[in-house]
Amino acid sequence: MNYNRRKFLQSTGTLVLGGLALSGKAGSLLSGMAPHPVGLQLFTFFGIIDDDVKGTLTKIAAVGYKEMESAFSKKGGYYGMKPKDFKAMVNDLGMKWKSHHVLGAPFKMPPGAKMPNGPDGKPMVIPPMKNLRDNMQELVDDAAEGGIQYLVCANAPTGTIEEIKSSIDILNKTGVACKKAGIQFCYHNHDMEFKAVDGQVPYHMLLTETDAKNVKMELDLAWAVKGGQDPVQLFKDHPGRFPLWHVKDLDATHTTILPVGSGTIDFKRIFANKAESGMQHFFVEHDGPKDALASIKSSYEYISGTLKA
């Protein structure tokens, strides 16, 4: 099932989208460069992790993942826990909690939209989710309480010029609030941001009309490729703007998400340009895999075995 975050967010009634470290023993990604711990975006386990948070995190740590980016939870908040409690659990398992995803602003629900099934095959039940437009300071304060380095806007409306400008305003205001809290704010893309709206490309507007210091980017490599972009060219055009990456693969038609290294994306070339991008952390992600644990094991093996020097 080609389930993804876009469909998930759409199903909550908050989203309509127009169009998607290595561990010490793994060695360095490139000769002469310091290794990066392999990170994981927990959206990979959406619909699963809430049933057994500690058990799921224990399995993830056993694979070798050392860094964590949290996401949406059916329990709300941080998988039903307070920020400090979630951080303690992650740390106790030998991992570091680096980043968290939040929504930018509510999206309009499309007519006739229905809740999709989650990875467990059952219709998802999603609680109302807070967003930066309406709950910015609370979300920033929670992230600061958890002591994470990054707060990431997972998505924001960009279907019209008015929506883009409103999202830019929200991103800039959140960037200021995060800076005051000692957190770096970032924006995470799908492929919709690369589709022209009234002759303008939303992602270009996001890059050029947000404060480059306060609003960095978490580049989802696969969604960028699906959107017709060359990640390396983005790095060259906006050096240092991409401290975070999402790493997943795509099939030849760019319609099916695959474990890293089992698709068509040239990760060796992309990682060879990580310094110019400003990358500090990267997170493996697989939206709605049939077997999340098998997927993250496959991705980890490829990253630690093939991308090392």
Rank of each mutant, 00 (worst) to 15 (best):
D52I: 15
S28L: 06
G199E: 00
H246Y: 05
A113C: 13
L93E: 04
R241F: 02
A71I: 03
K25R: 14
K84L: 12
Q200M: 05
H281F: 09
A143W: 01
K274A: 13
I265A: 12
M33D: 06
Q41L: 10
S23G: 14
T44K: 07
H188D: 10
G228K: 02
D291R: 04
L15F: 15
E138P: 07
E138T: 03
I257V: 15
V247R: 04
F45Y: 11
T306Q: 12
G32I: 06
Q280W: 06
I170G: 05
V176G: 11
P239E: 08
C186I: 00
Y203K: 01
T58V: 06
E285M: 05
V201F: 02
V152E: 01
T264G: 14
E138Y: 02
G64I: 01
G64Q: 02
N273S: 12
S277C: 06
G47P: 06
I161A: 10
R133A: 07
G64V: 03
P239L: 03
A181L: 00
V140W: 01
H254A: 15
L29H: 10
N214E: 01
K179G: 13
A62C: 07
Q137H: 06
D191C: 12
I257M: 12
P116T: 14
H204T: 15
S299K: 01
A275T: 15
G94S: 09
M115S: 13
M89F: 09
M124D: 12
H254R: 08
V38Y: 13
E69G: 11
N189Q: 01
D169I: 05
I183G: 11
F267Q: 11
A212C: 08
N273A: 11
K54W: 01
K87P: 06
V16G: 14
D142T: 02
E193Q: 03
K226P: 06
F185I: 04
T306F: 08
V247Y: 03
V247K: 03
I303A: 07
F46N: 13
I126E: 07
A71M: 04
N172Q: 07
E163H: 05
D211K: 08
P111M: 14
L57W: 05
V232N: 05
H188S: 08
F242C: 04
R5L: 15
K108F: 13
K75I: 08
K59M: 09
E67F: 01
H100V: 14
L307D: 00
H204S: 11
D249L: 02
I48E: 00
D266V: 04
W97L: 11
P239D: 08
V197D: 08
G76P: 03
S28Q: 08
L219F: 02
G118K: 12
I265Y: 14
A154D: 04
C178D: 02
V63S: 12
V90C: 10
L244H: 03
L17T: 15
C178H: 00
L93T: 13
K268D: 05
K84C: 09
F282T: 06
K130H: 08
D191S: 14
F107R: 15
Q184F: 00
